[in-house]
Write a protein that binds this DNA or RNA. Structure first.
Length: 382
RNA sequence: GGUGGGGUUCCCGAGUGGCCAAAGGGAACAGACUGUAAAUCUGUCGUCGCAAGACUACGGUGGUUCAAAUCCACCCCCCACCA
């Protein structure tokens, strides 16, 4: 099998769920995959050796944040992000497209790009599609994302169309700034179009005309009802090319991810395991728990009896509660270690299940753990 | 012994006649978090009640007043400085 960066081997299919292998300049990643988020070049509270120990294969970095601080040129002089942060496995960088959404009020969009005011010091910066490629090449990320305009749920069809069309034009400029095969970095396009099927299809086809090493689905999990995401994934499944990886950006909860896998998505990233860990919400084989709750004050049992991570092997719920309530730094590390292990293991188990042709059964076990998060719950008349 | 300052709801602390069950912070107890402006944010926080409302509360006792955490008298504590 070829291991040229960008090569995607589809190893098994179970329903629409896929198990594959994606080659990058820093080694292969097994899909489906969950990618921990390390916005500022660090998965918060977790060192690279821990990430490796819990089975992380690829992490995220963020163009906007690393450009502002310490500066992508500085990172380039250090030999790229992998040398700088000592994570030698694959890295995917987001383009700043999400900040177009999350920093609304601090940015202005034009045809040529986005003008940001830094959230750090208020200074003005301009991101064009070409600039974003240049930054990501300085970072030397294995998977670069096009600049896109991510919008929240509730936009009109007209607004959503404009954003999707602009994103498609930016996609072409990103591709032209970095033609396929220029170097070992891969470039992914991002499907936009909000909750509108016609726009989603238009967006996907525009990207396919341009041609990318992978296709991301953006603009989901931004406040829309759960069934909309599912509908969108089902719609896109037969449209997107079968031989390229698909990445559902920013998703999500355990069940969101398992539904995504079921609909043919290969890659996921989300801040949920790390942010929730820092805020005390922990994922267990019996569902979510908030470790700060009084009921755990004298609970000598492990966080999750079915988890083999360092946190669960070593500490009691009572101690973890104490660390959280006391604001101890160790709380962030132990909780993050556990939540990441949970997400990583869940997706690893999904891959195994697909390879063995029993994905539906595997997913059903998780659905039983999170009855309140059924994506069909808010679906209108089926 | 003298002079000055002070005792407020679990804690700190604002409040000098009604708009006070009483600012603000903390603690406590819950909840949220989806391509990280997040070690963040939100709610509750005297008792009873679904509520309207009732009751109990600002060191103690008594008083002034239609009305007192706020004014007066005495008493009990605490702090600073002086002797």
């Amino acid at each position: 099998m070829s291991d040229i960066p960008g090569t995607f081997h589809l190893l098994a299919v179970d329903g629409n769920a896929r198990a594959g292998l994606l080659h990058t300049a820093h080694g292969p990643i097994e899909t489906p995959i969950f990618m921990p988020v390390g916005t500022a070049g660090s998965v918060k509270a977790i060192a690279p050796d821990d990430l490796e120990a819990i089975g992380a294969q690829i992490i995220l970095g963020n163009t906007y944040h690393l450009y502002l601080r310490p500066g992508d040129d500085l990172v380039a002089r250090r030999g790229g992000l992998h040398e700088f942060n000592a994570w030698r496995r694959p890295i995917l960088t987001d383009s700043g497209g999400f900040q177009v959404f999350s920093l609304e009020g601090l940015r202005r969009i034009t045809e040529d790009g986005v003008e940001f005011r830094s959230h750090l010091d208020g200074s003005k910066h301009f991101f064009s599609p070409e600039k974003v490629i240049s930054i990501q090449r300085n970072l030397n990320s294995d998977i670069m994302m096009q600049l896109d305009q991510c919008i929240g749920f509730g936009a009109s069809h007209d607004e959503a169309r404009k954003a999707a069309e602009l994103s498609a034009r930016w996609a072409r400029r990103c591709r032209e700034a970095y033609p396929a095969g220029t170097a070992g970095n891969l470039l992914f396009g991002i499907v936009q179009g909000e909750a509108f099927p016609d726009l989603r299809e238009m967006s996907a086809r525009a990207l396919m005309d341009i041609g990318f090493e992978g296709y991301a689905i953006g603009g989901l999990a931004v406040g829309e009802p759960k069934h909309i995401m599912l509908r969108c994934l089902r719609q896109l499944h037969p449209i997107l090319p079968g031989n390229k990886p698909r990445y559902l950006m920013g998703v999500g909860t355990p069940l969101d991810i398992l539904h995504g896998i079921e609909e043919g998505v290969d890659m996921f990233d989300c801040v949920l395991p790390t942010r929730n860990a820092r805020n005390g919400t922990l994922y267990t084989s019996r569902g979510k728990i908030n470790i700060k709750r009084k009921e755990f004050a004298e609970d000598d049992g492990p966080l999750d009896p079915e988890c083999a991570c360092y946190t669960c092997r070593t500490f009691s719920r009572a101690y973890l509660r104490h660390l959280y309530v006391s604001g101890e730094i160790l709380s962030f590390r132990l909780n993050s270690l556990h939540n990441l292990t949970y997400f990583l293991n869940m997706v690893k188990g999904a891959r195994k299940a697909i390879l063995e042709g029993r994905y539906a059964e595997y997913k059903a076990r998780y659905e039983a753990m999170y009855p309140e998060e059924d994506p069909l719950f808010d679906e209108p008349e089926a």
